[in-house]
Amino acid sequence: MMMLSRAQYKTAAEKELHSILNYWMQYTVDNIHGGFHGKIDHNDQVYADALKGSVLNGRICWTFAAAYHFTKDPLHLAFAKRAYDYIVQYFIDPEFGGVYWTVNADGSPADTKKQTYAIAFAVYGISEYALASGDETAKQQAIGLYRTIVQRAYEPVHGGYLEAFARNWTDLPDMRLSAKDANERKTMNTHLHVLEAFANLYRIWPDATLREQIKDLIDIFLHKIIHPQSHHLQLFFTDQWESQSSLISYGHDIEAAWLIQEAAEIINDEALAETVRQRSLFIARAAAEALDKDGGLWYEYDPATDHCVREKHWWPQAEAMVGFYNAWQISANEEFLKMSLNAWTFIQDYLIDTRKGEWIWGVYENYHIIAQEDKAGLWKCPYHNSRACMEIMRRIQ
C-alpha cells in the first residue's frame, strides 16, 4: 500500500470536501417545500415525499457553516443559512420547546418525540452557523436549545442526560434512537453528541456553567462510559450507570478518541486535556482491534456472542481518518499515521462514488455494496465525511 505524504493527504481531503459539498448542493435541495429532501437512495433517486429528519438538517447546517471557515465561499454560508432557517421554521416546537424528530415533506410535524440526541445536533449545527455568520439571533437559538436539554433531559441524581421524551416532555415507553438500539434511559451515543454540541456552543458562548457541564460530561466518559480494562465505550446504561450491553461499536470508539479530547481543549482545561489525551491513545488502540488488512474498520462486535458485524460503513472509516491521525499527533507513533492513511485509501477504493459524488453507505466483507441503504437520509448525512476532510486539512495545516 503506497503511502501519501501529509501534504498530499491534505490536498486529497480538500478536493474530497468540495466534492461532498457539491453533491449536496446539486442533488438535495427541495425547491418545492424548502429546505432539503429527506431521502435519496443508493441509485441517486430522490424521494420527494420522504420524511425530513432533524438530525439530517442539523448536520447539513453544521457541515456548510464549518466548510465556510475553510472555503470562504458565500454559497456555502448560504446553504448553512438555508438549513438554519428550515430548522427554526419547521423543527423547533413552538409550544413545548426542543425539536421534532421528523417532519413531513411539506414541513408539517410527523414524529414529534423529543430525542435528546436530535436537540444536541440542532445546537451543534446552529452554533456553528452562528460562529460562521455572526448572527446573534442564531446564537440565542442555540443557547435556548442548550437550556432545553439541561432543563428537560438532565438526570440530577446520578448525572448525565436521559434519552427521549414525548412531545410534552412526559415519559416515553420506547426511548430508542433507532431500531438497532437498546431501550435504555442513558446511552453513550447521546452523551457523546451532547458533549460535542456543548463544546461547540462554548466556542461562541464561554459561559461558566456550560464549562462545568462540559467537564461533568467528560468525567462521565472517563469514569462511567469508557471500560476501565478494555478501553472500549460501553453503549447502554440504567440511570445508575450500570452497563446493559457488551456490544462494541468500533466507529464510536475511534470517534470518541478525538471528540472528548477536543472538548477538553475547547474549555482550556490543560490538566483535563492531558488526562484525556492519554485515555484517547488507549481508546484508539482498542478501536484498532477492528482494522482489516485493507485499512477498513469493521462495524461492531459482541463478545458475549462472539459475533462480529463484518461490514464497513462509511462513517466509521471517516472517523478512523481523524481518530488515528489524532493518536499519531499525541504519540508520534507512526503506526497510527499509517492507520489514518490506510483508512483514506480504503475510502477511495471502496466508498467514494466517483460518478456522482458523495460516499456509498458501505460494503460487506466480500466488498459487495450495501445497496439497500441511502445516499442521503435520516442517518446518511454530509457530516462524518466532510468533517473528516476538514479535520485532516486543519491538522496538517
Rank of each mutant, 00 (worst) to 15 (best):
I60K: 10
H69V: 03
A153Q: 12
F70T: 15
A138I: 00
F165D: 03
D85N: 03
Q151I: 08
E136N: 02
A48C: 07
F64K: 04
C61L: 13
V88M: 04
E95R: 10
G58W: 12
D41K: 07
G125A: 09
H42P: 06
A83D: 05
G160H: 12
L56Y: 04
Q140H: 03
S127K: 01
T116W: 01
V103L: 14
A67C: 13
P94I: 06
A164I: 08
A132Y: 01
S108A: 15
Q115D: 08
A67M: 14
A78T: 14
Q45Y: 05
R59Y: 03
L51D: 09
A83W: 05
D106T: 09
Y129N: 02
G125R: 00
H69M: 11
Q140P: 00
Y154A: 15
W62F: 10
A50T: 06
D85I: 05
K39Y: 14
T137E: 08
V157R: 14
K113W: 09
G107T: 14
Q151D: 15
V103W: 14
Q151W: 00
T102K: 14
I92Y: 05
G107S: 10
D111H: 08
L77C: 11
Y100E: 09
I143T: 01
T63R: 10
N57V: 07
D41P: 06
Q45C: 06
K39C: 10
Y146F: 05
V46T: 15
L145Q: 09
T112M: 13
Q141C: 02
Q151G: 14
G160Q: 13
A80K: 11
L51T: 08
M175N: 03
A66E: 14
I60R: 08
T112A: 14
Q89P: 00
F79L: 12
T137L: 07
R59G: 00
G144P: 04
V88H: 02
S54D: 06
E128G: 00
P94H: 05
A164P: 04
Q45D: 13
Y161E: 04
W62S: 05
N168L: 11
A105H: 15
G98A: 13
N168H: 15
A65Q: 11
G159I: 14
K52H: 08
Y47G: 09
P109D: 12
Y90K: 13
I143Y: 02
M175Y: 03
V46D: 03
V157Q: 13
D171L: 05
T116D: 07
I143Q: 03
F79K: 12
D135G: 04
T137I: 14
G160F: 13
Q89I: 00
A110R: 06
N168C: 11
A166C: 10
M175S: 04
Q45W: 02
A130H: 01
D85R: 05
F79W: 12
Q151C: 11
G144K: 10
R176N: 03
Y90I: 05
D49K: 14
V46E: 04
G53V: 04
R152L: 10
Y47L: 12
Y84R: 00
T137A: 00
Y161N: 02
H76L: 09
Y68G: 11
